[in-house]
Computed example of a mutant assay.
Amino acid sequence: MRTRALAAVLVATLVAAGCAGPQGPTPVAFTKIDLAGAPVTLTPVGESLLVGVRRDGQPVVPALLRRDPGGAVTEVPATPATPYGNLARWTQVDTDGTRLYAVGGERGGAHGNVRWSAWDGTASGVVEKRQAFSTFGGYGAGDLVGVVVTPSTPAIVGNWENPTGGFDIATWLPVGDDWIRQPSAGTALEASRDALPFPIAATRFGAGIMVVGWQFANGREEPVTWHSTTGVTGWTKTPLPAPSPGAAMSVHCDQSDCYAAGRLNGSLALWHLTGDAWTLLPDTPNYPVTDKDVLPAPVPTPTGVLQLVSEGDTLKALHHTTTWTVHTITGPTGKPTAAVAIGPTLHAVVGDRLWTAELDSLR
């Protein structure tokens, strides 16, 4: 009898383990949200979600859609002022809850450079503000990372040629309808012979801005952050803990801490800022990340942090508390490019569709 009882327990244990699968918990189903356009950017606005979309073949290609907590979708009219504004793909959209600011771009011209457009407005509509060609283009121009709204000012972040070589990280501030580039010389944003900076993503942090990316220094690629204390002033540079070459590629910040995601030696890496110190999260599951990939920003959860990655066409959600849990996702296929949480709901762009899931299902 005892032998039979032990055998029954063993069989039940094996069946339960088989249901979970060798890769972790039972797969989680995501829900597709149909939109009039392909989503590109996600921006929380209170309890609503602002989705930047691209519409091929429409009179106005860039569009903004606002999805309220009940699921109703309304359009925020976007009015271009230039031919390239009419073709722009959103790079980043940000808000202080009242004003909306956006940056978009589309390649064109004889050299195929990105032609940038700057937009602002409210929930009633955004308008492209025509800029002189030399504002974001011409000799010495680099790329734009996006736009960040701080308590004191909105700012555009990108890079611009350093007079002695390489590119500085650059910032622009609005003066009327014009965006004016601010000097980087003498700040932590300046390039030098010892360290060449490459910003990749930016977001608000406290009263300032957190920029993540990498620098070429000491003969290798090093993940780095740049943080301003107020608006675009008081910049400091902080190399991230890195046992191997790599870069920080996306970032999410709350009022008191930040998470950054990136790559080290071609594999996924995540860092956490608490107080004044960044730490590398240990034992991160091994997923390949290249310099051509786009990593969604990490999503804080009530018990840790969530990172979306893809394995082939299969979406995975990696949840870190004190250890890692790997969830396989059913529904979406393709690569994730954006993710945010509003209350208990995760919103993600995977491929060219918007998907949602409840965070409780991803613990």
Rank of each mutant, 00 (worst) to 15 (best):
L35N: 10
P62T: 00
P151A: 01
G213E: 05
V51K: 02
G85W: 07
G334L: 03
T79L: 07
A102R: 05
T95E: 10
A188L: 07
V326M: 10
E190R: 08
G125C: 11
T98R: 09
A118K: 04
V289G: 02
G105V: 11
I169Q: 08
P243S: 04
F30A: 12
T122N: 05
S310I: 02
L50I: 05
Q58A: 15
G105N: 09
T356V: 14
R99E: 14
P62H: 00
V51E: 00
L273P: 09
D120A: 13
Q307S: 08
G343E: 06
D257G: 15
I200P: 00
R204D: 01
V11K: 06
T122I: 05
L273Q: 04
P241E: 00
A16S: 10
G46M: 04
G105C: 09
T238Q: 13
S48E: 04
W271P: 11
A123Q: 13
Y84A: 07
G24Q: 10
T26F: 08
V212E: 13
P80C: 01
R66H: 02
R2K: 09
D291Q: 08
K292D: 13
D143P: 07
P288M: 00
D194P: 03
E222H: 07
V145F: 02
H111W: 12
E358W: 04
A339V: 03
G165K: 07
I342R: 09
L268G: 09
P83V: 05
M1N: 07
A8S: 11
A141R: 06
A5Y: 05
R193S: 08
W355S: 01
G312T: 10
W214I: 02
A357D: 09
D283N: 15
D68M: 06
G186I: 05
G234C: 04
R67L: 14
T274A: 11
V212R: 11
G70R: 12
P239K: 01
R66N: 04
L315R: 03
A123R: 10
W90R: 10
G138L: 07
D313H: 09
T95D: 06
D257I: 01
L240R: 10
H227R: 14
T333E: 13
V294I: 15
T330G: 14
G351V: 01
W235S: 05
T43F: 07
V51H: 02
D313C: 03
E222A: 09
V60I: 12
G331W: 00
I329K: 08
C258I: 09
E106C: 09
T303I: 11
A248M: 03
T79F: 04
D313G: 08
T301N: 12
D96Y: 10
T187R: 02
D168N: 15
T321Y: 05
H347S: 13
H347G: 02
R193M: 07
A78M: 07
W271M: 08
A248N: 06
Q307P: 10
A261T: 14
V9E: 10
L189Q: 12
V145L: 06
D177S: 13
F198V: 14
